[in-house]
Simulated assay, not measured.
Amino acid sequence: MLSVFLSVCSLIVVGLTNAAPVRNSSLAAETQFPYTTSLQLNGTHVCGAAIIAPELMLTAASCVTSNNTLVTLPVGNLSVRAGSLQHASGGVVSQITRVIVHEDYAGEESNDLAMLKLAEPLLYSPSIAPIAITNVDITANTTLTISGWVNATSLHWDTGLGHAHEHSKTIIYLDSSGRAGEPGAPAVWQQKLLGIGSRHSDAYANIYYHREWIYRNARAAMFT
């Protein structure tokens, strides 16, 4: 049974890291995206994640669940690397002790959001810092900045025009001319977090819509 589960985990790593490279992307500079971290499974980069508090991060639910279910990957195998442009070296590596998957996530792009709690709070610095949660909803053709690794070893960034989903307030779509192509990648506007990348192409969890979920679970995570 254990061998089967580990095989599933390895398939997840392959699936998440085979995304297309960031189109027309640029290499990130030191301290340009201090909130962007590498989520790792057994020491291998699988997704991005965004720092929102010293011991809390947001990523995609699809990054921490297996086979499009709500079965969470083993917490002991999950960690994040913060404060480095390289996902395989530098910065600091922190173990994850708790994963909170959105209760309405059903393996599709809607509600593809999860919160991570670290074993120890991060020490903020020019290269490690939180991103603020947005207090305004996205408007049509908002220019979003996305940062992630995709198939690269160094952090890249790109911009694209975002807009709300026509039929679902839970989702933001980014035009195909500029996207991170990586689950968990933060989408930012005016230094506010507006979206978290889904594993579904061009889709992002709408952070404004999910604010109450984020605040409620952040409070709960801080005291458990």
Rank of each mutant, 00 (worst) to 15 (best):
E103Y: 10
Y105F: 14
I12D: 07
P183A: 15
F33C: 08
V22G: 01
A119G: 13
T142S: 13
A119L: 14
V71S: 10
E109W: 11
C47Q: 03
F5D: 11
L144K: 03
T139S: 15
S176G: 13
N206V: 02
H167Q: 14
A20M: 06
S176A: 15
G181S: 03
T37H: 06
R211A: 07
P121T: 03
N151S: 12
L155H: 01
A114H: 01
T153G: 03
T44Y: 08
T37K: 05
V150N: 13
H87L: 01
T44V: 12
Q40D: 02
T139W: 15
I146L: 15
A29V: 07
L174M: 14
A19F: 06
S26K: 13
A180L: 02
G160N: 04
G162N: 11
A49C: 06
G43T: 04
P54Y: 00
L193W: 11
V46K: 01
S84H: 03
Y173M: 12
K117G: 03
S125W: 07
A60I: 00
V8C: 13
T69W: 04
A28I: 02
N135R: 12
H45K: 04
S198K: 01
R219N: 10
A119T: 14
V150D: 10
G91A: 11
G48I: 09
E120F: 13
D175H: 14
R219S: 07
A82E: 03
S154A: 11
M222F: 09
T159N: 07
P121K: 05
Q86C: 08
A114S: 08
M222Y: 08
I214E: 04
V93M: 11
L16P: 09
V13F: 02
Q191S: 15
I138S: 12
S110D: 14
S10T: 12
V92C: 09
S198E: 01
S89T: 13
R219I: 08
I12C: 05
G184T: 00
H167G: 10
L39I: 01
W157E: 01
Y215L: 09
T224W: 07
Y173N: 15
G90Y: 06
L144I: 05
E212L: 14
A106H: 11
T139H: 14
L41G: 10
I96H: 05
I133A: 04
I52T: 01
S84A: 06
S154M: 12
H156K: 12
S110N: 15
D202Q: 11
C47M: 05
S25C: 06
M1G: 15
G43V: 04
D137R: 07
L161R: 12
A218G: 12
S62A: 09
L70H: 10
L6M: 14
A19W: 02
H163V: 09
A218S: 13
R219D: 08
I172S: 08
L113K: 00
T139A: 15
W149Y: 12
L144C: 04
S168G: 06
I133C: 07
P34C: 05
D104M: 15
S38P: 10
Y215I: 11
I128S: 01
I171D: 02
G178N: 08
T224I: 10
S177H: 14
T224V: 11
V22I: 13
A218V: 00
N151R: 12
G195V: 07
G43P: 03
H87P: 00
